[in-house]
Structure formats: C-alpha cells, structure tokens
Amino acid sequence: MPHSPTPLVFRAASFVDVPELVELVESAYRGDSSRAGWTTEADLLDGRRTDPESIREMIEDPRCVLLVAERSGELVACCQLEQRDEHAYFGMFAVRPGLQGAGLGKEVIAEAERRAREAGAGEMRMTVIQVRAELIAFYERRGYVRTGRLSPFPYGDERFGLPKRGDLAFELLTKAL
C-alpha cells in the first residue's frame, strides 16, 4: 500500500512569513529556479514577481487573506484570497517548483474556493497572462471560464516584472461558487 503524503495545513500568513513567502513566489515564477516547475514566467518576464512590501500590504488588508499551505511544517504553497463586493479574487498563487504537478495546487485552489464560499462569495475571479495557454488550461480543468475580457499589462511598472515581449495582457477567468 503506497504511503500517503502528510496532509496540507492551511493558515493565514503572518509578518514572520514575509521573507519565505517572497522566496516562494519568486522561485515559482522567476529565474532559473522557476524552470523546475511548469508555472514559470521566466520566458515572459524578468525582474521581481513580488516584494516584502507587497506581501506585508496583503497581510495587513482586512479584505485579504494570504493563505499559506504547509506540509510537515514546511511552507509549500500560498495564494491571495481577497473579498471584492460579491466575488473573491484569487491571486499570488505559488507552489514550490519541485513539488508542482503532485496535486498541491488543486488542494490549494479547493481550499481557497471553500473559504470564499463560506465568506459569501458567489464567484471566484482571477487574472492570468493571456499567452499562458498551459496555465489557463489548468484553471479551465478546475471549472474556470475564460471571459475574453482583457486588461493591459502594466508595462513600465517594475512591480509586475520586466516584460520580454510586447504582447502581454491579463485575461479575466471566473468560476461560479
């Protein structure tokens, strides 16, 4: 009988987690370390994906929960869950690159959706860089729908990274809860 992995433990992030959260998000999206997983944006963007100030702002925001997933005491994934009117926004989603593809992301999304429903949200929304076909397909398999509604990529704002191409935009994906 195969050994089942230790279950994930979910909690709200605290200020003590800030350095580790920055490292986790950066490792999942930027630079060579991100290439170990499949969520890398290294071919699209250079620069930072987040910084300590942005993480602290999320932790301080009363409408926002920065959800941390731990396994055996190790921080392995995170996501932002923010109440906005009658929907919840899902963002800052990261899974350690070496652990991607093992089902952790599905568990984190399911927990975020459960919490959003419990908080009264009727819909989950997220934005994804529209050229990230494999990532969009992952979300579609979880019930998210492409809306075709695009918002411009914030070229010139280094908080979002340094684009390597000129055709980036965010597409809104939604899922009824």
Rank of each mutant, 00 (worst) to 15 (best):
M1G: 14
P7F: 02
P7T: 01
V9C: 07
V9H: 14
F10S: 03
F10Y: 12
R11A: 03
F15N: 10
V16S: 12
P19C: 05
L21D: 02
L21H: 06
V22M: 03
L24R: 08
V25A: 15
E26F: 06
S27G: 15
S27A: 15
Y29A: 04
R30L: 06
R30F: 00
G31I: 00
D32G: 11
R35C: 10
R35L: 15
R35T: 11
R35I: 02
A36W: 10
W38A: 11
T40Q: 01
E41H: 11
E41A: 04
E41R: 13
A42N: 02
L45H: 00
D46Y: 01
R48E: 09
P52F: 12
E53G: 12
I59R: 09
E60Q: 14
D61Y: 04
D61L: 01
P62K: 08
L66A: 08
L66V: 03
L67E: 00
A69D: 02
S72E: 14
G73W: 09
G73D: 07
G73H: 12
E74W: 11
C78D: 00
C79A: 15
C79F: 03
Q83I: 12
E86Q: 13
H87Q: 12
Y89A: 10
G91C: 01
G91F: 09
M92Y: 14
M92G: 07
A94K: 08
V95A: 10
P97W: 05
G98T: 13
L99R: 13
Q100R: 11
L104Q: 07
E107R: 14
E107C: 10
I109V: 14
A110R: 13
A119C: 02
G120C: 06
A121M: 10
E123H: 03
R125M: 09
T127S: 11
V128Q: 10
Q130D: 13
V131T: 14
E134P: 06
E134L: 15
I136P: 07
I136M: 13
A137H: 13
Y139T: 02
Y139R: 05
E140C: 15
G143A: 01
G143I: 02
Y144S: 04
Y144I: 11
R146D: 00
T147H: 10
G148H: 07
G148W: 06
G156Y: 08
R159G: 03
R159Q: 06
P163V: 01
D167N: 12
D167P: 00
L168D: 00
L172P: 03
L172S: 11
K175H: 10
A176K: 12
A176R: 13
L177Y: 06
